[in-house]
Design a protein around this nucleic acid. Sequence first.
DNA 1: ATAATAATAGACCGGTCGGTAAAATTAGGC
DNA 2: GCCTAATTTTACCGACCGGTCTATTATTAT
Lengths: 177, 177
Amino acid sequence: MFLKHSFQGTGINQVLKESKVPKGSFYHFFPSKEDFALAVLENQVEHIKRYGQKYLEEFNAPYLDRFTAFFENLMKPIAQSDFCVGCLVGSFGQEMAALSPPLRQATSGGFVVLKEMIRDFIEKGQAAGEIKGSLNPEVGAVYIVSAMQGSIIMAKVEKSSEPLDIFIKTSVGMLMA
Amino acid sequence: MFLKHSFQGTGINQVLKESKVPKGSFYHFFPSKEDFALAVLENQVEHIKRYGQKYLEEFNAPYLDRFTAFFENLMKPIAQSDFCVGCLVGSFGQEMAALSPPLRQATSGGFVVLKEMIRDFIEKGQAAGEIKGSLNPEVGAVYIVSAMQGSIIMAKVEKSSEPLDIFIKTSVGMLMA
DNA sequence: ATAATAATAGACCGGTCGGTAAAATTAGGC
DNA sequence: GCCTAATTTTACCGACCGGTCTATTATTAT
């Protein structure tokens, strides 16, 4: 619901109704809606981390194939939901960075996770001679994470996978030696 | 207020109080909050168009310098607001694409404007021999618009200009012949 | 068995939301 | 100067918001 309706557009009452959880139970475990969102966000970041391990590290394939597989799988839910959902890190970041310091800090942490995943990946790919050595890993990682977030927004808005495909293919082209 | 608090986070009453406009007057001219947001968005897109004309077309300088000037000026308000505001097209798109078909369509139009500005710019720069000819203008434009949107989110979240600088510099590098 | 604690349950709170109603005021055409 | 239409003003609406409250039921430790 956070993904589809955003933070402010998601009512606690809706969540409770949908999940059949009484209000008292909810507020027994979560001090506030904001705190709940922080937990959901953390869970999502863990999910992304697992994907990174699975496709960027453990997946035994050329580095650029890993890259493609990682993002294709990470972004699968977007098209599957008819472009109603995007990335929680980007969504919370965009919407709440200026309104909730805790959410800003948490999304910032999410971005750091994403960026470091890509940065490490670039460094290892460079060491393996499969990624252009002239690329600064930190800079390239920030740029790729930016492009990913933006392409997700464009995909949602246009209700089309094209921006996602362009993101993956162009990024791969940028990484190629 | 839309830029800082997002669509759903901005109350009509706040807007009316801030602008000292009585409620009746507001609803005399705007059928709904959504319709008002559409008008604000349209105004913002016009603003972007003017910037495009000024810096990408009329500005008599090398193409890559135009590119830098365009985005540096377009993004100035972000840092100036202490990273509390971003891009209305991206913000409305991210937040409302799945919730309001009219807003989705309007933001989609905004993205088309942005994309076509960049695409035309790439084509002209290529004709002038200042932009890498092997780049597909359409694809490059989509990628750059994506990267711009994402870098704005990152900048807001990290409260830092770094993602914006990286966006501009890396994009210029990508465009260079 | 019992006391203490954890968890469930939903009615209830003040406040705000977007939006409406209808009267009061202003402005413009004749 | 007068009628009409445009605009302003504000009180008001039901719905919903996030969050609190108190009572009750499970669970655990003693």
